[in-house]
Computed example of a mutant assay.
Amino acid sequence: MRELSRPIGSGMRVYPGDPEVVIEPALHLDRDGVDVARLHLGSHTGTHLDAPSHTVAGGRTTGGIGLDELVGEALVVHLDGLVAGQRYGLVELERALGGPLPERVPPIVVLDTGWAERFDTEEVLDHPALDPAAAAELVRRGMHVLAVDTLSPDPSSDGGEAGFPVHEVVLGGDRLIVENLCGLAGLPERIRVGFFPLRVDLDGAPVRAVAFG
């Protein structure tokens, strides 16, 4: 089993405009008999799930998402050579796969851009972004969960001013997005993965992400 999720800690990187992460003592063992921490963080902290309601009015919240939607076979695409700010699409996906995209893809598609290693740098904001047309084609071919190692499958450098077209395609189709994966290097093209969110009923939630096998 391999860990694919980021540790959560005070001051960690968040999407521009999201709540900062603060973890501090609330109760103390020597004073109160127990240690308890107070957590202040946004619902899209670290490695997390986007529910449809994140960008779709009236969309499903995390409370309406079953774990069976978040565990299953994944197609892992290792996209070498992408550059800052690049829009990548079917051409880059098929080049990475060494052949045509399968007519039917597994329910989970994991895109490894290599940008996870830039998470703690300013470069993280200028990550490659998926072409919305490619996202639509992945949905057509059976993708239910789009999982990426970047802050978003859409551009982040503008703080969302240009909109969220990939979110519109995926979440607008009542499908799901997982962001900020790590530890993807070396995963095989097909592997079983799972994303386990906090049991809250919100627009998103941090997840524990794992690869099995």
Rank of each mutant, 00 (worst) to 15 (best):
R95Y: 06
L97Y: 06
G98C: 09
G99P: 09
P102F: 02
P102N: 08
P102Y: 03
P102K: 07
R104Y: 06
R104H: 12
R104K: 14
P106L: 10
P106V: 12
P106F: 06
P106K: 11
P107V: 07
P107C: 09
I108E: 00
V109I: 05
V109K: 03
V110E: 05
V110Y: 04
V110C: 06
D112H: 15
D112M: 08
T113K: 01
G114N: 05
G114M: 03
W115H: 00
A116V: 07
A116G: 13
A116M: 06
E117P: 06
F119L: 15
F119K: 11
F119M: 15
F119Y: 15
D120S: 07
T121P: 08
T121D: 11
E123C: 01
E123R: 12
V124Q: 08
V124F: 12
V124S: 08
L125S: 00
D126S: 15
P128E: 00
P128L: 00
P128H: 01
A129R: 13
A129K: 09
A129L: 08
L130P: 02
L130W: 00
D131Q: 00
D131T: 01
P132T: 13
P132D: 10
A133M: 11
A134P: 08
A135F: 14
A135G: 10
A136E: 14
E137H: 13
E137C: 10
L138W: 08
V139N: 00
V139K: 06
V139Q: 02
R140P: 01
R141G: 05
R141Y: 00
R141Q: 02
M143Q: 13
M143E: 10
H144F: 07
V145G: 09
A147M: 12
D149R: 06
D149G: 05
L151Q: 05
L151I: 09
S152F: 04
S152M: 07
P153H: 02
P153D: 05
D154F: 01
P155T: 04
D158A: 04
E161C: 09
E161L: 14
E161Q: 13
A162Q: 10
A162D: 14
G163C: 12
G163E: 11
G163V: 11
F164D: 10
P165F: 07
H167K: 06
V169M: 07
V169H: 05
V170H: 02
V170Q: 05
G172M: 09
G173S: 15
D174L: 00
L176I: 11
I177E: 10
V178T: 01
L181A: 15
L181N: 09
C182K: 12
C182Y: 11
C182L: 15
G183E: 13
G183M: 13
G183W: 12
A185G: 13
G186K: 11
G186N: 09
G186P: 07
L187I: 04
L187M: 02
L187D: 05
P188A: 04
E189A: 15
R190E: 02
I191N: 03
I191S: 04
R192C: 11
V193F: 09
V193L: 09
G194R: 14
G194E: 15
F195H: 05
F195G: 03
F195V: 03
F195Q: 02
F196H: 11
F196T: 15
F196R: 13
F196E: 12
P197R: 00
P197S: 02
R199F: 03
D201H: 08
D201P: 05
L202E: 09
G204Q: 03
P206S: 07
V207F: 14
V207K: 12
R208W: 14
A209I: 13
A209P: 03
A209C: 11
